[in-house]
Simulated scan of single mutants.
Amino acid sequence: MVRCSNGLLGLLNACVLVLAIVTLGGGAWLSHRASTTDCERFLERPIIALGVLLLALSLAGLAGSLCRASCLLWLYLLALFLLIVLLFAFTIFAFVVTNRGAGWVVSGRGYKEYRLGDYSTWLQRRVENSENWAKIRSCLQDGKVCEKLGARKETLSSSSTPTSPRSRLNSASAMRDRGTGSSVTAHGSGCCKPPTGCNFIYQSEIVWMKPNGFNGTEDPDCNTWSNDQTALCYDCTSCKAGVLANLKNSWKKIATVNIIFLVFLIVVYSVGCCAFRNNRQDNSYPAWK
């Protein structure tokens, strides 16, 4: 049993070691990419930090299990326990703050629009912070979200030869429903076009004209909209809501992955506890026995 628990712990930590090397390699690759944007650079440090943490944990676990170093194994189990607690807390937090909020389908158009007030107060405060939003806005522009959305819709429109703006929008929503460009759906709806209630005149996917005599509406996003391709609706509340819609989906996926990872860590922790107990029992007997 002693050999089994130590050997199994060593095997599990060998798998974590491989994962750590892959994570560090991904961080290094990202940092040396010539075309890396500021948003991608933001991911560099967390990815590298995660890789270093996994590397340290796996090496400590390997040394503690294979060399039967009880002190090192105790430190390893303590760090692993803290990691489990932090991941559990983050998973619960992610599900709580993303529990609210969903887009509503525009009648007859087939696409969704988003309202900032539908999301949790904590998320609203994050995007309403001017410093945070400046960074997010820069990421949206660097990622050419609206340009890509417009290009995809124009490609679909030319292939299906729609006869009206409405049919072009319906064709675009059909493209979205088939999964093409789904990653920019919320951004595109909130940031790349004015809200439907503004009743602006369609010119192209990212060009909309204000009707003659337009004196503003109750919706401030109608006044914020600009045909300047560097502005569009990037400062609209609908854009911030679209960002939160994508963020909500991403966090739920991350939380789901965290649950799987937590189960794995709990198994490793349980095996580690067995190995630690067995090591102490072995070390408690004199060598001549």
Rank of each mutant, 00 (worst) to 15 (best):
R125Y: 07
S171M: 05
L75D: 00
P195L: 06
A134T: 01
G7R: 06
S164P: 01
N129C: 04
P211I: 06
L50S: 07
T155N: 15
K240D: 01
C236P: 13
S238A: 10
G197I: 15
V268T: 15
Y285Q: 13
C192I: 03
V127Y: 02
G143W: 10
G110W: 05
S107I: 09
L62V: 02
L75E: 00
V97L: 07
R126K: 14
I48S: 03
K289L: 12
V145C: 00
A231H: 15
A34V: 09
G110Q: 05
S284I: 01
S183A: 15
R115Q: 14
S164I: 01
C4L: 14
C146T: 06
I84Q: 13
L62E: 00
R137S: 09
R100N: 11
S270Q: 05
S238V: 00
V263N: 07
V145M: 03
L247F: 11
N129P: 07
L50C: 05
F264D: 05
N246E: 14
Y76E: 08
N99V: 07
F264C: 11
S164Q: 01
L17R: 00
I201T: 14
A231M: 15
S189R: 02
M209P: 00
D38P: 02
G7E: 00
E205T: 15
L59K: 00
G117M: 05
N199E: 08
F261G: 02
I201C: 03
N132Q: 04
M175I: 10
G190H: 02
R152G: 15
L247M: 12
C222G: 12
D221C: 11
L24K: 01
I254K: 01
S70C: 00
Y269N: 05
P194A: 03
M209E: 12
L8V: 14
A60D: 02
S182W: 04
C239W: 04
L265V: 02
L87G: 05
W225T: 13
T37C: 01
D228A: 09
L169C: 03
P220W: 08
L66A: 07
P220E: 12
F200M: 04
S270W: 12
L140N: 03
M1P: 04
T230S: 15
P165T: 00
K135S: 08
C71I: 06
K240Q: 10
C198V: 10
V257P: 06
L57N: 03
A20W: 04
G242A: 07
L73R: 11
L55N: 04
W288M: 03
R100L: 08
L169I: 09
A20V: 02
N170P: 04
I21Y: 03
A34Y: 06
L62Q: 05
T185C: 11
R125H: 13
I92M: 08
G27P: 08
L30Y: 06
T36Q: 04
F81I: 11
S5I: 01
P195D: 05
R277D: 08
K210T: 09
T37M: 00
R152D: 14
E218F: 11
Y202F: 14
P220T: 12
K248M: 04
G150I: 05
L265E: 13
L82E: 07
F88Y: 10
C146F: 02
G181K: 07
N129K: 01
R178S: 15
D221M: 11
A79Y: 07
L66M: 12
M209F: 06
